[in-house]
Nucleic acid binder design. Sequence first.
DNA 1: CGACTCGTTGACTCTCTTCAAGGATAGTGG
DNA 2: CCACTATCCTTGAAGAGAGTCAACGAGTCG
Lengths: 245, 245
Amino acid sequence: MAPFDSGKSTWKNAALLDATCVDCDVRNTAFCDGVPERELARLETLATFLEIRSGETIINEADPSEFIFNVTGGAVKLYKLMADGRRQITGFLFAGSFLGVSDHSEYAYTAEALAPTSLCRFPRKKFESLLAEFPTIGQRMVSILMDDLAGAQNQMLLLGRKTARERVASFLVLLSTRTGKKEQGREVLPIPMNRVDIADFLGLTIETVSRTLTSLKKDNIITIPDGGHIEILDSDELAAISEHL
Amino acid sequence: MAPFDSGKSTWKNAALLDATCVDCDVRNTAFCDGVPERELARLETLATFLEIRSGETIINEADPSEFIFNVTGGAVKLYKLMADGRRQITGFLFAGSFLGVSDHSEYAYTAEALAPTSLCRFPRKKFESLLAEFPTIGQRMVSILMDDLAGAQNQMLLLGRKTARERVASFLVLLSTRTGKKEQGREVLPIPMNRVDIADFLGLTIETVSRTLTSLKKDNIITIPDGGHIEILDSDELAAISEHL
DNA sequence: CGACTCGTTGACTCTCTTCAAGGATAGTGG
DNA sequence: CCACTATCCTTGAAGAGAGTCAACGAGTCG
C-alpha cells in the first residue's frame, strides 16, 4: 500500500467499513433524507461505506462515472485541470454533500480528500433505479443540485467580477456559514485547506491570497492565530467587503 | 403596454398561447421527455405557454421562486448583479433548456430574453408533485441539472484561470456546439447577444472582447461579416486556443 | 440630417502576477 | 538536543495583461 502522502492512490485503496444508514451522521442532510426508516435496509444493500485518507483521490475528471457518493465526514476538494497545469477548484465539500456530478457518462471534476474522509457510495445504475423506487430521493436530488447550481453561480460572479479583496472576504464568509460556530461574538474558523487550494478556488495566486489576508489582518477584520485557523473579528465588515467594495 | 425595448417588463405582460405538449418543439430534449404520450394531457393541465419579447425579464434574482420554465424557443440570458452594477452572466439558454434554478425558495439569477422567446411554465409546487407522479421527470431533471452543473464548472475554470484569448475562443467553441451548423467546412455562427453580454459572460470588458476578436480575425481564425455573425475559419485552432495557450 | 446605440481602436493606468528571497514550523537523523 | 531539510507562508520589487478613459466610425431611427 502507498505511503500516507501518496496523491495517486484512489478509493480502490480505501478501507471498507461496516457502517449503517440508520446511525449515519448525515442521515437528514444527504439525498437519502426522506427515505422511510423501514426502507433503510434496502438502501443499505446498494451502499458501500468507505474511509479514505487525506490527499487520496476519490474520482478523476473524465473517468467513466460508475459511482455517486455522499460525503459522510471529513472534507473534499473538487477541481478541474488544464493541460499546462493550471487548476480551478470548483468547490469544497463537507459532511452531507453529494459527490459525483457527471456530464453524460464522465465525471466533470476530480475529487480529492482534504482530510481523512468517510463516504458512502452507490453504483450509478442502481442509483437511477433508486430514483424510480423512492420518488423522495428524486425530489431531494433536484433540491440539492439546484442549491449546488446556485452556489456555482455565486462562484461565477466571484471569479468573473470580484476583486481579490472581495474574493477572499467572500471565501471567509462562505466557510463561516458552512463550518463556523460563533463563541460569544468571536468566531474561529478552521481552515482545512492550504494557500494553494484557496488560491485555486478564488482564481488568484497564493501570493495575492497571502497579501490580502495580511491586509484584512492589518484592518482588524481578522486575526490569523496559525496557518490552520482564521479568527473573524468583524463579520459585518467582512460581509460588506464580500459583496460591495 | 410597454414599447418594444422595455427592460422592466416581465412575463406578466407576456402573451399567453394555446400551445400543446404534443406538438412541442422541445418535446424530446426538455425535462418532460419520458412522460408517456397518453399522460401529456395531464401535463398540459399544469403548464402555461408564454411568448415574450426581446429584452423582457422572465424572473428576477431573489424573487420567490413560484414557477419553473422550459425554454421552447428563442434565447435567454441569466445573470447576477452586484450592488454597484457589476454583472456576471452565468449562462445563455436556448430551446430545450430548463429555467428557474433556486436556492431554497428564491431564484438564483435574473433571466431575460435575448430574442423573442417562447416558454412553458409550471407552478413550482405542482412541479414537485409531478416528480412524485412521473419518476422519469425526476431522472431527467437530475440529468439536466448535472449537465448544467458540469457546464458551470467549465465556466468556473474559464473565469478563474483562462486568459482573455482563451475565454473568447472557448465562448465561440461553446456557441458552435450549441447553435452551430457546418456548411462544407465553413461555419457561420449567429451571435444573438451583444458585446456587453459577451463581456459580462466571460468576465471581461467590451474593449477586451473587441480587441480579442480583432486579433483572432488578424490570425485568420475567424471573420466577422457583421455584428450579429462570426464565421469560424479554423475550428481546430480555435479549440486548441480554448484549452491551452 | 442630427441623435443615439454599438463596436472598434488608441493611450495610459492599475491590479494582480511573476520572480525572487527570506521566515516559520515540523519532521528526520546523527 | 541540535543541525539539516522540506514545506508552507509571507514579503518585496518588477512586469504584464486586462481595465479605464477617450475618441471615432458605422449603422439605425425618428
